[in-house]
C-alpha cells in the first residue's frame, strides 16, 4: 500500500488544523474504535463558508483527506459544499489506496455534519435529507 505524493504532502503539512472559536457549525463524525474521528468547524457568512478548521484522530489518509477537504470548502456556498463527494476528495489527493477510501467518505460526512449543525443553529432545522453513504461495507464494527 502506497500513498500518493499529494496525500503525503497533506499528511506532513496539514492545512487548517484547529478549531474555530466562533464557529457557525461543527460536525464530528467517526468512531475511535474504527480508528478515525474527524471534527470539522466552519464559519459561514452570507451562505458562504469563509473559514474552516479540522481536528482528526486517524491514519495518514484520514489526516490528508481532512486537510484537503478544508481547502476545497473555503469560499464555497453551502450548496456547493454539499456537492463535494468522497470521490472528489480522493481525486483531489491523486487517489487513495482502496482500503483507505472510507477516509474520503468520512470527510464527506464531516462536511455534511458541520453544515447540518449550522442549519440547525440558524434555522432550527437540519438538512432535510441526508445522503446515503456507502462506507458501511468498509467497516466491521
Amino acid at each position: 500500500m502506497q500513498y500518493s505524493a499529494k496525500v503525503m504532502d497533506h499528511f506532513a503539512n496539514p492545512r487548517n488544523v484547529g478549531e474555530l472559536p466562533d464557529a457557525s457549525g461543527v460536525g464530528e463524525v467517526g468512531n475511535p474504535a474504527c480508528g478515525d474521528i474527524m471534527k470539522m468547524s466552519i464559519k459561514v457568512k452570507d451562505n458562504v463558508i469563509v473559514d474552516v478548521k479540522f481536528k482528526t484522530f486517524g491514519c495518514g489518509a484520514a489526516i490528508a483527506t481532512s486537510s484537503i477537504s478544508t481547502e476545497m470548502l473555503k469560499g464555497k456556498t453551502l450548496d456547493e459544499a454539499l456537492g463535494i463527494t468522497n470521490k472528489a476528495v480522493a481525486e483531489a489527493l491523486d487517489g487513495l489506496p482502496p482500503a483507505k477510501m472510507h477516509c474520503s467518505v468520512l470527510a464527506e460526512e464531516a462536511i455534511e455534519a458541520a453544515i447540518d449543525d449550522y442549519l440547525k443553529k440558524t434555522t432550527g432545522k437540519g438538512l432535510e435529507k441526508k445522503k446515503q453513504h456507502a462506507h458501511d461495507d468498509h467497516h466491521e464494527h
Binding site: E28, P32, I37, K55, I63
Partner: peptide, 8 residues
C-alpha cells in the same frame, strides 16, 4: 495529539 479531537 494537537491535531486529535480526542486529546482536546
Amino acid at each position: 495529539r494537537q491535531m486529535s479531537p480526542l486529546y482536546s
